[in-house]
Write a protein that binds this DNA or RNA. Structure first.
Length: 273
DNA sequence: AATTCGTACAACCGCAGGGGT
DNA sequence: CACCCCTGCGGTTGTACGAAT
């Protein structure tokens, strides 16, 4: 494989000829890990040259940040993380790196892939533009409640302690405009699930119901204060009347959707039985 | 069993912005 | 100020793999 001259930065012709592309081998991974362990990360172009890797600095950086770095989480996104992505995407759009900063251990690339393969897939299925208000409403009305129930389900089944989801109706409810969530609590340097009772408010969700919604992260669990999606005033707007029609047209329990883990209702129905 | 199709995800690409000279 | 280099971001592509036919 050849690498175009444009992408190589300061490489000369001979170096370009030698550069490798495509999937990383185990040896290359080990070499990169070893080099960064000894010399630290950064200065990727010089790292690429000094390490002996026949890769561009860009490629080394990407491989390290997205895959090899020790604190990178691998595996499926939890329902909590999915909710957070939906929430943050509704606020910031395709600002993947910014979103990733609030999901410790998750990379922008992973979140971007998740959005494209799982969320946009549903938009295609519904024949809705994934950036449209209509699709945001669809997520709000159909996906978010399911994810919330998944969170509840996983919490109640995985923990016997009182740290599971709790109805916090006895807590003072947030009235009016919901305050911006203290997202700094979820910075990349802190584990959002590890601190005790850090309050996280999802304004996107809050806006979707007459009563505001607040979630408490406590001992690895989200606590639902309230989620009253049936009272969504926006659903009475002109914009969403079209959505109602489309929702009626789409079989949300079709095999295609059910098979998808993102929307899989199997466990939910099992839970409800 | 062979082929086609769809999905997930790793990797690449172009571009913009910042810092140094 | 202009230029160069480096870094990071977001969009896109390539490919491995499992499911469906």
């Amino acid at each position: 494989m050849r690498v175009s001259k444009k992408m190589t930065g300061s490489c000369n012709e001979q170096q370009i000829d030698e550069l490798r592309r495509g999937p990383w081998t185990l040896d290359e991974d080990n070499l990169l890990i070893h080099y960064i362990t000894c010399h630290g990360e950064g200065r990727w172009n010089s790292l690429a040259k000094s390490s002996g890797l026949k890769r561009t600095g860009k490629s080394c950086r990407l491989r390290w940040l997205n895959y090899l770095k020790p604190d990178v989480k691998h595996g499926n996104l939890t329902p909590q993380e999915q909710l957070l992505i939906l929430e943050l995407h509704s606020k910031w759009g395709n600002r993947w790196s910014k979103i990733a900063q609030n999901l410790p251990g998750r990379t922008d690339n992973e979140i971007k892939n998740y959005w494209r393969t799982k969320v946009q897939k549903q938009a295609r299925h519904l024949k809705i533009d994934s950036n449209s208000k209509v699709f945001v409403e669809a997520l709000r009305q159909f996906l978010v409640p399911r994810l919330l129930e998944k969170v509840e389900f996983s919490s109640s089944s995985s923990s016997s302690s009182s740290s599971t989801l709790k109805n916090l109706n006895s807590q003072p409810q947030v009235k009016g405009k919901v305050k911006e969530a203290p997202l700094e609590n979820m910075s990349s340097n802190s584990n959002i699930y590890s601190s005790n009772s850090k309050r996280i408010v999802f304004p996107y969700l809050a806006e979707s119901s007459l009563q505001s919604n607040a979630y408490f992260v406590e001992n690895n669990n989200f606590d639902i204060m309230s989620f009253n999606h049936s009272n969504t005033p926006e659903f009475r707007t002109n914009d969403t009347s079209a959505l109602e029609f489309q929702m009626a047209e789409v079989d949300w329990m079709s095999q295609d959707l059910v098979d998808d883990t993102f929307w899989n209702m199997d466990e939910l129905w099992q839970f409800k039985k």
